[in-house]
């Protein structure tokens, strides 16, 4: 791979493509993790017995 500087559209778009892949997959992963952690909290709350 030879980046002759970021001005070339080739290189720029390749980097952008990789960034977008990372953004979409990482973003979705982060969102699922967030829901998971939230549910954990909710489960703790729910586990407390109601008087």
């Amino acid at each position: 791979m030879h980046f002759e500087g970021m001005s070339a559209m080739d290189a720029r778009h390749l980097v952008l493509a990789y960034a977008s892949v990372a953004l979409f997959q990482g973003g979705y992963f982060a969102w699922v993790v967030r829901n998971w952690l939230r549910l954990k909290d909710d489960e703790k709350k729910a586990a407390k017995p109601v008087e």
């Binding site: 030879h2 559209m9 290189a11 390749l14």
Partner: peptide, 10 residues
């Protein structure tokens, strides 16, 4: 050129 490498994710 190098942009063809997008293929591997696309």
């Amino acid at each position: 050129g190098d942009v063809g490498r997008i293929f591997y994710w696309h």
